[in-house]
Design a protein around this nucleic acid. Sequence first.
DNA 1: ATACATGTTCGACGAGTATCGTAAGAGCGG
DNA 2: CCGCTCTTACGATACTCGTCGAACATGTAT
Lengths: 123, 123
Amino acid sequence: MNGQDYWLPQPDLDGIDVGTVLQALADPVRLQIVRALDAAGESTCTALDVPVKASTVSHHMRSLRESGVVSTRLVGNARPSRLRRDDLERRFPGLLASILSATPPSRDGGDSPAGGPDPKPAL
Amino acid sequence: MNGQDYWLPQPDLDGIDVGTVLQALADPVRLQIVRALDAAGESTCTALDVPVKASTVSHHMRSLRESGVVSTRLVGNARPSRLRRDDLERRFPGLLASILSATPPSRDGGDSPAGGPDPKPAL
DNA sequence: ATACATGTTCGACGAGTATCGTAAGAGCGG
DNA sequence: CCGCTCTTACGATACTCGTCGAACATGTAT
């Protein structure tokens, strides 16, 4: 009814640290959550299709919020979250875009054998 | 000295995974190494000013190499490494730049995004 | 060749954290 | 009112990984 939204506490724009953001984005599940939020625009914990339990999703969402990656809105009983696109773009121009555009959701066999034989020392 | 360089094995351009790169960059020490390499252009393990032992630096350098962030050259007994700028820029345009330009080594407290003494990426 | 320097590898230890199950709080609908 | 759903908080467990010391390999200098 009214346009007034309540939000969960989140770091200020200048309080967003690149190291913290990288740590938040380093986890595969959290990165998957970020990609899902990018596609959906906004989503709640239970609506996300991730291979972990709801309590774990909530835990990850908290990490993402405290690191400054997402904003969480308080609407009734639900807590829909969304990416802080503008803030991240202002703080780290091009970072989120390059991450999201890279390797779109490909879930089939695609784990890079970092320890395996590397056939091409190019350059 | 000869013009022929030998390199340690490293992943192919298409084999670089954004998640793996983010994991590599998530560690504070590794991020510090990356910033040092950005400033120096090329450096060996012992020449880097990082608060960990040499064996740990070697360990981190291996992670960075296997994730596709750095290239390591074989010259005599030394192993100078450098950032794979071109490859990373081609694979994830804007990613490395946004990370490196954000919050330079804040050793003197606070971040000075502009007007730094020598933000000079030579190479 | 011997000695030294530079890097790497290995085993071990400890801190951090990802995951789960359960319980509790808060709003919505019957 | 009572139940149902969504979400978070807490405790417990297991695992990843960052760190170190020591040993080893390799190339350089004396």
